[in-house]
């Protein structure tokens, strides 16, 4: 088949809601878009370990410590899973990590906010994981097979994390006055950045139309954001916490909650690298990578020695 015929076959597959697999022909733009998106997703899992990992050694009960450790472990697993999905498109994990460290691939800007209190761990679970799930559930139907399948498993674990976050938040809210205040303070700081996780408004989202046409994106940024707000309002009521938006109110006509104006200047600033933790997150990531270089080199040298000797070597794990 020549390229035109391949393009026709690809378009027909997308139109019939089929799945594109790694060996299938695909337009370069489709491949690049997916690599960018999946790598960003993988990087977010890896960078996301930092703000929560910040509290593992200080968790206030052994039960919470175990839950948090298990969660952060899941995130490392999600990262590995997603890097593998991206690798099926022809870019190695090493290359993606180099691009992350060089600031040429992104991660979710939400992880550039700090976690100064224990309640931030709960807020991340409830709001950040909640927003992530809202974004990711439609991706289980994404046109690229390996990504869609990765998302099915990841969404299951994320929804578990979200429930744990909600439960932790509920415990804090119903706890001592100090715990309640801690929970409210965390919500005050995480609510608006969570809404920004859905990306710029639809009229300012240049890549959305193409991604939608390719069956990568199923709903618009604003649709998903609205869905998230509608889910969160009753949950906040159950929690006994106040979402920090005076304009939040039910709109019977629309059948949705109206919400206030998002500060997109802040979003743009964080995206540009000027959030509270951008530099710290990348510096920590780079440091871990460079500190570990001799370890990875040792593993490679050992594997090469054993291979030369004709032995099978267990894969680094």
């Amino acid at each position: 088949m020549d390229t035109d015929q391949q393009q026709v076959a690809f378009d027909a597959l997308i139109a019939s809601d089929g799945r594109v697999e790694p060996r299938d022909w695909m337009p370069e733009g489709y491949r690049k878009t997916l690599i960018r998106q999946i790598a960003q997703h993988a990087h977010s899992e890896i960078i996301g370990m930092q703000p929560e990992g910040n509290w593992i050694t200080r968790a206030p009960s052994l039960r919470r410590k175990a839950i948090l450790l298990a969660k952060v472990q899941d995130e490392a697993g999600h990262g590995l899973y997603l890097y593998s999905a991206a690798e099926t498109l022809g870019m190695s994990r090493e290359e993606m990590l180099d691009l992350l460290h060089a600031g040429r691939q992104r991660y979710s800007s939400i992880f550039n906010y700090p976690t100064p209190t224990w309640a931030d761990v709960a807020a991340i679970g409830w709001l950040v994981d909640g927003a992530a799930i809202t974004n990711q559930v439609p991706l289980t139907r994404c046109s690229y097979g390996p990504y869609a399948r990765a998302m099915i498993r990841i969404c299951k674990e994320e929804s578990f994390h979200q429930r744990q976050g909600f439960e932790s938040q509920l415990q804090l809210s119903n706890g001592t006055p100090e715990q309640h205040a801690m929970a409210q303070d965390a919500i005050d700081r995480w609510w608006w950045p969570s809404l920004m996780m859905f990306g710029p408004p639809d009229d300012d989202s240049p890549n959305s139309a193409q991604s939608t046409a390719w069956g990568i994106k199923r709903f618009s940024n604003d649709e998903l954001r609205q869905r998230f707000v509608d889910i969160c309002v009753p949950q906040a009521q159950t929690l006994g916490l106040t979402l920090p938006d005076p304009d939040l109110c039910w709109n019977a006509e629309r059948g949705h909650y109206d919400y206030g104006v998002i500060d997109w200047t802040e979003f743009q600033q964080v995206l540009k690298g000027n959030g509270p933790c951008n530099r710290q997150r990348i510096a920590t990531r780079r440091q871990a990578h460079s500190d570990g270089a001799w370890v990875r080199e040792a593993a490679a040298a050992y594997a090469a020695k054993k291979q030369a000797a004709g032995a099978t070597v267990p894969v680094a794990a």
Partner: peptide, 24 residues
């Protein structure tokens, strides 16, 4: 658990957290 997010490779972030969790 102090290794979390500082390990030489992601497999080890996962493995060390896993061992820490077993011990916990």
């Amino acid at each position: 658990s102090e290794w979390t997010a500082h390990a030489p490779q992601i497999e080890e972030d996962l493995a060390l957290a896993n061992i820490a969790l077993d011990l916990l």
